[in-house]
Computed example of a mutant assay.
Amino acid sequence: MDKKIENIGHLSGKVLLFGGIYSNLQALESIKQIAEKEQIPAKNCICTGDIVGYCAQPEETVQFFKHWQARSIAGNVEIQLRRGAKNCGCDFKEGSRCDSFSQQWYQFAQSQLSKKSLEFINTLPEHIQFEYANKKITVVHGSFFNISQFIFKSTPWHCKQPNFEATNSNVIIGGHCGLPFHHKENDNLWINPGVIGMPANDGTPNVWYVIIDDSNNFFNFKHYTLNYNYTLTHKLMKNGFLPEAYAKTIVTGIWDNTEILPELESRLQGLSVQL
């Protein structure tokens, strides 16, 4: 089956990049406020997928995102939801804590979404491509080849390089792994802006995003942290349907486990993110 790739042409001015909203309406409201403060139009705001996820307001989050008219690709969660699948497709190890927890939050999210929200989810492309500051950029969720592939800063470059070749891109904007990073080799750059729905396992409740800009016709980017009303998110997650461990993570900034992480990223748990 051919991939659904949306080419949005040439963008200019500031572009806001973020991922993993994870049904966290409070974080989404805050990132929209950042866009307004920075005077970034909705068409220049791009999500790397997983609008739906671990938190308590999947329906409200999808509808808010839809009315904002920002752009997003489909994450593995959206792909599974529109297929009517019984699991999130996150590629967690069978029987792991993440796999067990996913049975709770995915079924909760699936039960909450309206027909209109599912119709919107069905419109999301698998990838977005655009030209910016004389560079070709492709937005992926996991990788271009596998939507559920976990790619981290420590992932060897030879695993990343084929994505640039297959898409003829200079820059890849990735998601899925939940941690912000950037990795440059030669003239190619991989940026993961991080996610706004969950902390980055660094011991703070803040979440992450990136703004790129083309000042003086150069490609510039910067990682930022976002402070939002996480206490309300935490309160809403304690509804009896969602994993208590994830509600705790919203406040502590520490992941319940590091099952998906490579050794390097696992050792960095609780430490400030260095970018």
Results as ranks from 00 to 15, higher is better:
F152D: 04
H158Q: 15
V195Y: 01
D99E: 13
H183A: 12
G84C: 02
W157H: 03
V195F: 01
Y106L: 07
F145G: 10
N87A: 14
H127V: 08
A200G: 08
E131A: 12
G197I: 01
K184F: 00
G194V: 02
D202A: 09
I191C: 07
F218S: 14
N168Y: 11
I196T: 04
N163H: 13
N217Q: 15
F152G: 03
Q107I: 10
R83D: 14
C159H: 14
G95W: 07
R83A: 15
D99S: 13
K115Y: 11
S143M: 06
C88G: 12
D214P: 00
C98Y: 14
I211N: 04
F120D: 11
P180A: 03
L226R: 02
L226W: 00
N220W: 09
T138G: 08
L226M: 07
Q110K: 15
I196H: 03
Y132W: 09
Q103S: 13
S148W: 07
Q103W: 14
W157Y: 12
T167K: 08
F181P: 05
Q110P: 04
F144E: 07
T123A: 10
Y209D: 02
H182I: 09
I173P: 00
F92S: 12
C177I: 05
L118M: 12
N229T: 05
N220D: 11
V140K: 02
I211R: 07
F150I: 02
C159A: 14
I172H: 01
N229R: 02
N217A: 14
D202V: 02
F101W: 15
P193Q: 08
S100K: 15
F164S: 00
F181H: 02
P180W: 00
L124Y: 01
N122Q: 14
L189A: 08
H141E: 01
S117L: 00
F164V: 06
M198H: 05
S114H: 06
P199N: 08
G142W: 02
D99K: 10
N229I: 01
S143K: 01
S143H: 06
I196Q: 05
